[in-house]
């Protein structure tokens, strides 16, 4: 089985990479982009039957820094 962990910056946390991408998009002529936030997608290959709660715990203990990031776990 597979699980997908999406890590994103918490709202309000400044994202310098997102800002740089926003400016680059504007430079390419894409108008109407009001904000860009960069996150991470982590795909896990898991033993069959691994409970998603275990993956949640992986998120809390390592995959995300909950001081600045949120994360979401979903089966893939």
């Amino acid at each position: 089985m597979k699980a997908r962990v999406t890590v994103s910056l918490k709202p309000g946390v400044l994202d310098p990479q997102g800002r740089a991408i926003l400016h680059a998009l504007e430079g390419l002529g894409f108008s109407g982009v009001t904000d860009v936030r960069v996150g991470k997608l982590i795909e896990l290959e898991l033993a069959e039957g691994t409970p998603l709660e275990t993956v949640e715990e992986m998120g809390r203990r390592l995959l995300a820094n909950t001081v600045i990031e949120n994360f979401r776990v979903e089966p893939a």
Binding site: V13, L14, P16, Q17, A20, N65, V67, I68
Partner: peptide, 11 residues
């Protein structure tokens, strides 16, 4: 220690 160290604002 509290807080986090993120990418420099100017990248």
């Amino acid at each position: 220690l509290p807080g986090a160290l993120m990418r420099n604002a100017g990248l």
